[in-house]
Structure formats: C-alpha cells, structure tokens
Design a protein around this nucleic acid. Structure first.
Lengths: 254, 254
DNA sequence: TATGGGACCTCACACAACGTGAGGGTCAAC
DNA sequence: GTTGACCCTCACGTTGTGTGAGGTCCCATA
C-alpha cells in the first residue's frame, strides 16, 4: 500500500479554500503563495503548509488588506502573533460597523419623523424570517425562559390590537417622556425613580417584573440595536442613561 | 442683508463629508452625484440635498457596495426603506466578522497548543489601552456594580500570582473538563450540575455568587468573544451549551 | 487505440474605483 | 498685477481580480 501524501491541484485547493483558480495563479505570480511543487508539465501542486498559508491569506483579505501588506505580514513574527494582532483589527472593524449601525438607526428615526417608533412599528414590519431570527437571538442570548417571557409579552401585544395597545403605548410614552426630561435636565441615573416604568413592564408581561428580571431587561435594551435606536431617538445618550438607571434601580429594590 | 444659501464647492463638500475631490468628480462623471449647479466657468456647486445624498452614498460604500449598485438603490423606494434594508446588510456583515473572529480564536487556540488559554493568557497580553477598553465595555454593558465585581476578581487574580492562581486554574480546568464531557456525551444542559462551577466563581470573586449574578455571568460569557473563544476551544458548541446550562441552573437555584 | 470531456497551462485584455500627476484657467487679496 | 489657493479637464497608473482565447494533458469509456 502506498502512502498517499495529501496533495492538491489548483482546482482542488480552490474548492477547499473558497478562493478561485485565478486567485491562486495570481498569488503564485506575485510570489505570495508558491505551490509546494510544480510537475514537469507545469501543474501546480499544493500541500498542507500551503493550505494553511492560504487560509491565513484569506483571513487578511477578508479584512481588506492589500496583497502587498499581507506579503509583509507573513514575513514577520510567528503565526500566533500575527493572528492575535489580526483579531484585534477585525474587532476594531466590527466596532466601526457598530458605529455605522448606530448612526443609521438615528438617521432612520429622524427621517421617520419627530415621533420615535411605536412598539407596533418595532415588531410589525419584520417579515416572518426576521421575526424568527429575533426569536433565535432571544433564546440564545437570554435562554429559554426569558425568551418565553418576552414572546408571551408580544403575544399579548398582538392579541390586544387596538384600544388597549394604544393605551399602553400612550402610557409608555408618558413615562418615557418624564424620564427623558429627567435625563436632559442632567438627573443622576442612580437616583431616578423607575417604579412607573417597571410597573408598565409588568403590565405588558402580564405578571410581576422582579428586580433582577428588570435588570436583565436593561441588558436586552443595550444589546439589541432596535431598542437602542428607540431610546436614542428620544434623546441622544438616553439609552445609556436609562439602562444605568435600571440597573441601579433594580439593585436598590432587589 | 443677503440671504446666504448654503453652497459648497467640491473641496468644501469633500472636507465636510470625508470624501475626496477625485471621488466627487468621479461620482459626477458617472451620474451618481451631480452638483446642484455648475457655474459659467465650470465650477461644481453643491447644496444640502447633494450633501445628504452623498452621505447616503458613503453609507453604502462603507459596506463595500459597488457604485452601480448604489445608483440602483438610490432609485428605489424611499430613503427610510433604503436605510432600513441597508441596516440589515450591515448587521449581516457584522455577523460575518463575528464568525471570522470566532474562527480566528479557534485557530489561535489550536496553534498555541492542546491547552486552551489560561486565564492569565486571556488578560495578560492585552496592552493597557485594550484593558481600559475592556473596562469601559464592562461598565457600559453590565453597569457599575457588575463591572466592579469583575474588576475586583481580576485584582485578586493579579495579586495572587503563582501557586494560588495555578491552583485555581487547575481546579477550573477540572470542572470544565467534566462539563465538556457531559456536553460531548449529549447531556441536557438543563439537567447539568453546575454547583462546582458556581462555587469556583464565588471563590474567584471572593464572595458568594448569587443565582442571578451567575445568570448574568452567563451573558458575559456569551457577549464577550474572548470567553466564547475560550469555551469553543474546549469543544465546538460548548459555549452555547454552558450558558444555557448556567441560565437553567440559576433558575432552579434562584 | 481512439476520443471525448474535464482540468490544467499561459498569455492577455477588461474592469471598478479611484490616485496621481500634467497643463492650464479662476478668484480674492494684498 | 501677481501670488497662492483653489478649480477645471484629460489621461494614464494601480489592485485584485473576471473572463476569455488558444493550447496541452489526463483518464475513462467506446
């Protein structure tokens, strides 16, 4: 039995890595990724080390680095150092995107008019798929129980279309308006009285909102861009303030 | 007094928007962004609507869309619809980056050897700035209290370098190994016994870890890539399983 | 043994989205 | 009236590919 060393032709490597044949030709041409071996007939043969190198190259390309830069990088330090520093860059890139999203959210809010989105707007326009995504996100992020609670709340929201919902919304708007006023007047979030807000949440959920459930909710606010958008639309920086206040409040009343 | 209508030359618009003069020329050439007016001498004059349009263009460019696609998009729907759908795309892009980071983390783990990173490794290599960032993140995400708890824990980690820390790490590894075994054997996360883990956390913190603090910690795990990396390195999918288990556990013991 | 149909090869040209001059008007001020 | 900071229009260079054209090579099947 012959020992088969794992070898790849361009096409195989391309399929395995997600690159194209043309890219591999190009990388060879500029000396970024030479095949391990070239047959007498000119076929490029790649092995394991080349596969790894290619993967690293693709990492960097995914972050929009130029092939020149990548060539430099691959000549410096050890693989681990390179990847760790790359990780930081990608993370930085993500932060930029997060900032863009925040700006987008605020722009959207402004374009939709003075009024921030109502709760209906927040949920209704999502097509089924988006809704399902959101559900998944809830479950993986908050666990089954919290997700169930929230789903329950939304059911109630859906069931009582009309007067009740409008009434709830108006009530919420009133509560929020007061909090925004406090915030804009420079009020300390730790001193804020959130009892009205907590009660409103309890009403919406259909059962009592304990202090730690309330604290948890504040994280939901912070973690989910839709909510941030909603509160930032009310006043810049309000989402931060409100969540800080919620955490402080639940600690005091826990 | 003359009413001054706000007008911009190419250079002014470039500085205001972050684009370059060349880009504006180009956008004019391809009809993507025409000036509001061209003077007799050929100077391009832009006004408010062009500024807004340019901002929208730059949003899309930031997400690597082609100018052709952008041209199409700007002809469809209303601004709000466009931005909302763009928001989704950016969010999707962020998920891709998150996936890349996860892959990077696992690659790094593998390259650093069989052993997943120790807690020291997790914290030590970060330069001061990164550390500060992390602190900020803790505070904005978890509020002052939780952040203080965690900072406290880290102080203890730093103070007791040597034997004690090693001992703690070994202990943690043992606990985690058992949990991983349970996970890999297909164990139900809701049935898992996390008392050992919770006790370990309490030891590290230096005071009791209540059920809801424990639940909260699970969210920290899920939210922070470093932790995900740590647990994914132990076993693929383990971070999800563990956090689910933690939530269930804290609910049972709360 | 002939004969496909793939997969491979090397040019080589096309493309987007600009950067970077060259060569030359324009404008406000001193 | 000249200086210096702007503006204009070509027009070619660059990067990282896509997309052929035209030819070679390998292997399975008739």
């Amino acid at each position: 039995m012959e020992e088969r060393i794992e070898e790849y032709t361009v096409g195989e490597l391309a399929r395995a890595s997600g690159a194209t044949v043309r890219m591999l030709h190009h990388y060879d041409a500029i000396g970024l990724l030479k095949p391990a071996h070239v047959t007498a007939k000119g076929y490029r043969i790649y092995r394991q080390p080349e596969l790894l190198r290619l993967q690293e190259i693709l990492f960097y390309r995914a972050a929009d680095m130029s092939l020149d830069d990548i060539t430099m990088i691959l000549n410096t330090g050890n693989p681990v150092e390179r990847l760790v520093s790359h990780r930081e860059k990608v993370a930085a890139q993500m932060e930029k995107y997060a900032a863009i999203i925040a700006t987008l959210d605020r722009t959207i809010m402004k374009l939709t008019g003075e009024e921030p989105m109502t709760l209906e707007d927040l949920y209704k326009p999502f097509p089924k798929s988006k809704q399902a995504e959101y559900e998944d996100w809830l479950i993986t992020t908050y666990g089954q129980e919290m997700a169930a609670k929230i789903a329950n709340a939304r059911e109630r929201l859906g069931a009582e279309v009309g007067d009740t919902l409008d009434a709830q919304n108006k009530k919420l708007k009133g509560i929020e308006a007061k909090l925004v006023a406090t915030y804009e007047a420079g009020g300390d979030p730790k001193m804020a009285d959130l009892s009205a807000h907590q009660n409103w949440v309890a009403e919406m959920w259909g059962y009592p909102c304990t202090a730690d459930a309330y604290a948890k909710l504040s994280e939901l606010y912070l973690a989910h861009p839709d909510f941030i958008a909603r509160y930032e639309a009310l006043s810049e920086g309000f989402s931060q303030w409100l969540t800080t206040a919620m955490v402080a409040w639940s600690a005091k009343n826990g």
